[in-house]
């Protein structure tokens, strides 16, 4: 079970997440296509992907990588504490890539009686190229 995090224990500048995913496999993209309902052949059919200019073939669904970011976030804070998750799709992920997701606390404040922590989050491949960047808000309990 994910350990509860307390507002008092979290500080701006803290590194909060470290999750490594991969290497990405084509089979995962097939599974994700079926699970999500996104059947764009760019993600599952090498011939199609090459025909539209992807020289190495298929690329991952952006939403698959966001799903991995969601996994990373909810391995730091319990899922029912998550209030918002937003990302920008910055680069394409390919089979063989190993994606590392990390995050840093950027703000903490009390809003309408809720203890809100905001963190930046970024997913990079083994070369350090950014695939997805974004942020999330979580409402944390207080020890008091």
């Amino acid at each position: 079970m994910i350990q509860e995090k307390y507002f008092e224990d979290v500080n701006v500048g803290d590194a909060v997440i470290e999750l490594k995913k991969g290497p990405l496999q084509k089979l995962q993209l097939v599974m994700y296509a079926g699970a999500s309902g996104d059947f764009n052949p760019l993600h599952t059919d090498d011939d199609f992907a090459k025909a539209v200019g992807m020289k190495d073939g298929v690329i991952a669904h952006g939403m698959f990588v966001m799903g991995c970011v969601g996994q990373a976030v909810t391995s730091w804070v319990p899922k029912n504490r998550l209030k918002r998750l937003g990302v920008r799709f910055a680069g394409m992920s390919k089979p063989g890539n190993t994606i590392t997701i990390s995050g840093v606390v950027t703000d903490k404040r009390v809003v309408d009686g809720e203890n809100i922590v905001t963190c930046s989050v970024v997913a990079k491949d083994e070369q350090g190229d950014v695939k997805v960047s974004g942020s999330f808000d979580a409402a944390l309990p207080s020890k008091a």
């Binding site: 995913k21 699970a35 799903g67």
Partner: peptide, 16 residues
């Protein structure tokens, strides 16, 4: 089943 399938497709094996 769809929740389980979706989590597994991402490779998220959180038991919840």
């Amino acid at each position: 089943g769809k929740i389980r399938e979706f989590a597994k497709a991402i490779g998220d094996f959180n038991p919840i």
